[in-house]
Design a protein around this nucleic acid. Structure first.
Length: 564
RNA sequence: UGCCCGGUGGUGUAAUGGUAACACACCGGCCUUUGGAGCCGUGGUUCGAGGUUCAAGUCCUCGCCGGGCAGCCA
């Protein structure tokens, strides 16, 4: 077993684990777990937790379990189990043979509950949910003890058995831990351990059970049963740790250590399952795997790579400070990786016809284009050039402002991998819209690699008779505001939705080599961004999703001009 | 007016009592057949006030600010 936990710096969790190893607290063992509830899709915040748990196990020569925490049949479905497994695999992690379900422990938990009753530490309570709430007290006032708190062990045992047997209606009784109704920590005011749920069957155990353990009771047992050493969870469980410890101590069971860390928040993003589900249900996005979603499924479809996400997780670190990470950081790692691995292609999204008047009508040339300047070994390809081309409408302006140094009347620019062209004429239609532009080219300018700047601009193009039509889906951030939940009184986050978060553009012109693109193939469209072939593609109808744009100096300048 | 947890450049994370570091973003500059990529540089004295110490972001005290907690959710 190769341990490599000597490098610095190290976060507070790894520091604690080092100490535990040094003191022999768990016999130098490290065993973590990722415990999702199968009630929704995994998002980038889960990626942080997955990364943390699996990487720590790897670093310390330990193991990490995948455990579905399926203790609430009302919310859980096997669809989510499968999606979650797929996402974790895609992210690059392997739970090997350690796939577990809390629902497999129900019988064991039940027996432990009986033990607790016998110790006089748990009782069946006949109070209604409302009555329990009223008796719980408030943040500043102690609670009131339940009138059923002092039932005999025998009666509790009998009642609990009848609860399991389904003799009581849903909501009529609970099993509660007998702790302290005046504890300043409200979690310790006789928390509910079991509730009766009869209306819905459990997706795995069906109707076998009609009592289900609550989180606080179940989670520590799950960790204990699996021999987990370090149970990593988010900050909101901090106040639950005394309870986690209490149950395990009362039962005298193997006792893992719970450590809390701050969950991930990102700008321009909502991260709770509730809101994500709402986006899906209200059809604001097209499903959980919509490329605008911060779900792993969405990011996969958007073209993000698992490598980039992992590197992001590594770099954000882990701490106890509530924080909001700039989404630019994620995008940075996506660009960084894609820049390395993507072959370049020329695609014109918003075509403008360009006619080279002095280029022979029938002539076609095959020009060399570099596949990936980051990796010369990927070689070159041929791209066809001819008299009529398409260029990006944005690359021409009739009345260019300062700092725009692309094509304009009388101006010369280089066509990437081809020639210099000079604009001689602008042709407009009846409405005055620019229909095409006419140019002359310099036949001697091909491959003049060392030619110093006859123009500052190089633009991309595609040959009109050779190109293929493709559909491009231009995705932008789903929300306009850094904090999408920052809304005026009485409205919800939909007021912050970006109305332009998806633009579907058909009739885009792509270089012919893209005809072979297969779903999930990733490319850089030169000067535009990174794109991935979408599974919606069919033969003859290829669809690309924009993963992320290239950084664009000109866009910045334009923005500066529009609001100085 | 309760309990718990936090507070280091715009953002996130380091500094383990000894000259505040790294990344992203931003702004300059260099380079470039992608206004891409790459390279170089400018921003902070660590929430505030005291205290301990030769020495404090780090330890102590008191404030201030932020977050969490009153589901038979997790």
């Amino acid at each position: 077993m190769e341990n490599n936990y000597s490098e610095k710096p190290v976060d507070f969790i790894r520091e604690i684990i080092r100490q535990d190893i040094a003191s022999g607290r768990f016999g130098a063992r490290v065993h973590t777990r990722f415990p999702p509830e199968p009630n929704g899709y995994l998002h980038i915040g889960h990626a942080k937790a997955i990364h943390l748990n699996f990487e720590i196990a790897k670093e310390f020569g330990g193991k990490c379990n995948l455990r579905f925490d399926d203790t609430n049949p009302a919310k859980e479905e096997s669809e989510y189990v499968e999606a979650i497994k797929q996402d974790i695999k895609w992210l690059g992690y392997d739970w090997e043979d350690r796939l577990y379900f809390a629902s497999d422990y129900f019988e064991k938990m039940y027996q432990y509950a009986i033990e607790l009753i016998k110790k006089g530490k748990a009782y069946v309570c006949d109070l209604s949910p409302e009555e329990i709430r009223e008796d719980r007290g408030t943040l500043t006032q102690p609670g009131k003890e339940s009138p059923y708190r002092n039932r005999s062990v025998e009666e509790n045992l009998e009642l609990f058995k009848r609860m399991r047997n389904g003799e009581f209606p849903e909501g009529s009784r609970t099993l509660r831990a007998k702790i302290d109704m005046s504890s300043p920590n409200l979690n310790l005011r006789d928390p509910v351990m079991y509730r009766i749920i009869k209306k819905v069957p459990h997706y795995r155990t069906g109707n076998k059970w009609c009592i289900y353990p609550s989180y606080d009771w179940a989670h520590g047992l799950e960790d204990s049963i699996e021999g987990i050493t370090h149970s990593l969870c988010s900050l909101e469980y901090e106040n639950h740790r005394p309870l986690y410890d209490w149950f395990l101590d009362q039962l005298g069971l193997y006792h893992p250590r719970q450590i809390e860390f701050a969950r991930l928040n990102m700008t321009y993003t909502v991260m709770s399952k509730r809101y994500l589900a709402e986006l899906v249900e209200r059809k604001i996005v097209n499903g959980w795997d919509d490329p605008r979603m911060p779900t792993l499924a969405g990011m996969r479809r958007a073209g993000y790579t698992p490598e980039a996400i992992r590197k992001f997780c590594k770099h954000i670190g882990v701490a106890k400070t509530d924080s909001v990470v700039d989404i630019e950081l994620l995008e940075h790692f996506v660009r960084e990786h894609l820049n390395k691995i993507c072959q370049r292609k020329m695609v014109v999204i918003n075509p403008l016809k360009l006619v080279i008047e002095n280029y022979p009508e029938e002539k076609t040339e095959q020009l060399d284009a570099i596949n990936n300047p980051e990796n010369p070994e990927e070689g070159k390809r041929k791209i066809p050039f001819s008299r009529i081309l398409f260029i990006e409408r944005d690359d021409f302006m009739e009345n260019p402002p300062e700092k725009f140094y692309r094509l304009a009347p009388g101006r010369e620019v280089r066509l990437r991998y081809a020639y210099y062209v000079k604009c001689t004429q602008v042709v407009k239609d009846e409405k005055g819209d620019i229909k095409e532009i006419r140019c002359v080219y310099d036949p001697d300018s091909r491959n003049m690699y060392s030619d110093k700047k006859r123009s500052k601009a190089i633009i991309h193009w595609v040959s009109a008779i050779h190109c293929i039509d493709v559909e491009v889906r231009l995705y932008e951030r789903l929300f306009l505001k850094k904090d999408p939940l920052d809304v005026p009184e009485g409205s919800d986050f939909t007021v912050n939705i970006n109305p332009d978060s998806l633009k579907i553009v058909t009739g885009c012109k792509a270089e012919p080599s893209l005809a072979d693109a297969k779903p999930n193939d990733r490319f850089q469209f030169e000067r535009l961004g990174y794109f991935v072939c979408d599974p919606d593609s069919a033969s003859g109808h290829i669809v690309f999703n924009r993963t992320v744009s290239l950084k664009d100096e000109w866009q910045k300048i334009k923005k500066f001009f529009s609001h100085p």
